[in-house]
């Protein structure tokens, strides 16, 4: 039960707040989060831009005293809705505010015509996972967050591979025709929104082919997307990773949301990546 009646809480669209204020509220709700991921105003702004977050449909819950106590964000792509940044301030938990935010976001998603809602929850965040199951969400797949320190590749691509950089046009074409399922974070829309994409294509003499695309910023390689076909996915991806890290040896690398069952996983481990944590992707037909 809400300790105050729902009518004593006020829902305010996120668009009524500055990015500075949204960052503060978000950080307040995540101060004790299982994997600390604070954001500053610039990061919140990039996040809403890159992931098509609709700030008019995203919400802050204020209590009767006008204090922001919970939040949740909503993004739309076609008939899909994505729920993200859900959080309740630690001293307000146990009052069903998470239920309240989820019900409101799902109502807004339905009203907007979405046919499916999706979200991710960090493995180990049991209270959130229970809430999502209660709302009807079901497990879809597990996603890995990988990290690799800056360093040149330890090996050279095998000579059987022909490797070439992708042009800007080829990057877009590759993303639009990929066969591997993407998560919201590495959807083509997300990568196009974030920009600064680089990529390589590898083809083996035995017919195996693959490509790897990511965002290159001053300090980091991020927003990875990949695709492969043929008999040697490990070797193909390793050749691409060798080339990537040989080309950008001073960048840290962070791959969010690699499918845990991807045949590329072993190549990332060989190339020096470590698993930092896992998320569960969940879906709800609306």
């Amino acid at each position: 039960m809400l300790s105050q009646s729902p009518s004593s809480f006020c829902i305010v669209p996120c668009s009524h707040f500055t990015f500075e204020r949204l960052a503060d509220i978000y950080n307040d709700t995540r101060v004790d989060y299982i994997v600390p991921m604070p954001m500053n105003a610039r990061r919140v702004q990039e996040y809403t831009h890159d992931y098509d977050v609709d700030l008019d449909q995203s919400i802050i819950v204020e209590n009767g005293a006008g204090r922001a106590v919970a939040m949740g964000m909503l993004a739309f792509r076609g008939e899909r809705a994505w729920i993200t940044r859900l959080g309740v301030c630690p001293d307000q938990r146990g009052r069903k505010l998470g239920d309240y935010v989820m019900d409101e976001l799902l109502r807004r998603a339905r009203e907007r015509g979405a046919k499916i809602a999706q979200l991710e929850v960090i493995v180990g965040n049991e209270p959130a996972a229970r809430l999502f199951v209660k709302k009807g969400f079901r497990f879809n797949r597990e996603l890995l967050i990988l990290s690799r320190p800056p360093a040149p590749a330890a090996t050279m691509p095998a000579p059987e591979f022909n490797i070439a950089p992708l042009s800007e046009t080829e990057v877009l074409t590759s993303l639009q025709t990929r066969t591997c399922a993407s998560s919201w974070l590495d959807d083509t829309e997300s990568l196009v929104n974030t920009g600064h994409l680089v990529g390589f294509r590898a083809s083996h003499t035995n017919g195996s082919v693959g490509w790897l695309i990511c965002k290159k910023s001053r300090f980091q390689l991020s927003h990875f997307a990949l695709d492969m076909s043929g008999d040697c996915p490990h070797e193909t991806m390793l050749a691409l990773l060798d080339t990537l890290h040989r080309s950008y040896p001073t960048q840290d690398a962070k791959f969010e949301n690699l499918d845990a069952l991807s045949p590329a996983f072993s190549a990332f481990m060989t190339a020096g990546y470590i698993e930092v944590f896992r998320r569960t992707e969940m879906l709800l037909p609306l």
């Binding site: 600390p36 954001m39 500053n40 610039r42 990061r43 990290s147 800056p150 300090f219 840290d252 962070k254």
Partner: peptide, 13 residues
């Protein structure tokens, strides 16, 4: 967990 750049990225630099 830093708000602007990941801590491990800082350490790498």
């Amino acid at each position: 967990g830093l708000p602007d750049i990941d801590g491990q990225t800082i350490i790498g630099m």
